[in-house]
Design a protein around this nucleic acid. Structure first.
Lengths: 189, 189
DNA sequence: ACATACATGTAATCAGTTACATGATTAT
DNA sequence: ATAATCATGTAACTGATTACATGTATGT
């Protein structure tokens, strides 16, 4: 039941609407948790009912009204309690890896195309994370930021996401080239 | 709906019982898919009902009887169809990363302890994957195996898992040392 | 005696996804 | 005109987790 804690964490750096969360979940948070807008709206409603976040209505003219949420003291306490509970080892779920595991039994050309596509997506994520990290660091170098910056938490998780996607890109490229080489060898045999 | 395809893939290298699958899912498959025994038994039953796997009863004396499953032609066709569908980008779900993201608001000592523990777990996984890969390669070197080995699919996914866990271990170690340095600085301030 | 491995499930609940629904404003 | 952005949800369904249930054989 960590979605609520991911939401509380996302709200630590100020008030957000459900809509804003839905966006930021696809950038800073997406390395370790993912959620659809509907889930976030539902979770915010539950968190408010439980007194862990407080919402305030903001009336707008040119746009629909919105509700901005902040973490309450009870919410902060809940987050601290959560941080003390044991963590279960993480897991990945990846359709593409399932397909690669079945590489010996399925169409190679199609797999290669999907690996190339995924490598490109991962590359774009690497650049996005680099940008976010540069922005967060500001004037400071990485070592300095890690030592003295505010928001080490988010910075560390961005670092993790950056490495994951970089790793991902490299592996997809390699796997594609391995499959290409084997397909080529089969043809000339 | 990729659990069924993960199961079909796992059954590609020969017949397995639900019990055996439950074990092997925690090693070779665990880098990209995870499932509890109950899910596997249920999925095998569904796959059998759909004619994608065939089960045969094996009567044993000293142990309970078991059912061994193999992929049918229809199952193989389904796997090939699946391999042609577009893959949605993977995602990680990790409690510990949520906690690190909230690092600035929670107890540092506890987080550090969890990061150290996770680094050790990741290290053990790296060794396990190395062992499995050596076993799979046999006499061959890695480049040779990737070029000519049977089971490139499983080998490539083990490679991915190996790198993921290695990355994980490094990051956990670094994150812990960053948090330790900051905690130390706070104390002496 | 106690734990672990073997072997297979059911039932209840919780979490996540897909599909649907509404409606104004701004940019191309 | 068309698409994208802002803004928030409901309803139905599928997938995953937790708790429970059973029973034998082997190792420490």
């Amino acid at each position: 039941m960590a979605l609520r804690h991911a939401v509380l964490t996302a709200l630590l750096d100020g008030e957000h609407s459900g809509y804003q969360l839905a966006k930021s979940f696809d950038v800073g948070m997406a390395n370790f948790w993912h959620a659809l807008p509907q889930q976030l709206y539902a979770e915010l409603a539950k968190l408010e009912a439980d007194g862990l976040v407080a919402g305030r209505e903001v009336v707008q003219e040119a746009r629909p009204n919105k509700r901005l949420f902040t973490v309450t003291d009870a919410g902060l306490a809940e987050l601290r309690r959560f941080a003390r509970t044991p963590s279960k080892p993480s897991f990945i779920r990846d359709d593409l890896l399932v397909k690669v595991a079945a590489a010996d039994a399925v169409d190679a050309a199609e797999l290669i195309a999907q690996l190339d596509e995924r490598a490109a997506i991962a590359g774009a994520k690497v650049e996005l994370f680099d940008k976010l990290m540069r922005k967060m660091r500001g004037e400071l170098g990485e070592a300095e930021y890690l030592a003295h910056g505010t928001q080490v938490g988010p910075y560390l998780t961005l670092l993790r996401g950056r490495r994951f996607e970089s790793e991902n890109r490299e592996w997809c490229t390699e796997a594609a080239s391995v499959l290409r080489a084997r397909a080529g060898a089969d043809v000339t045999r």
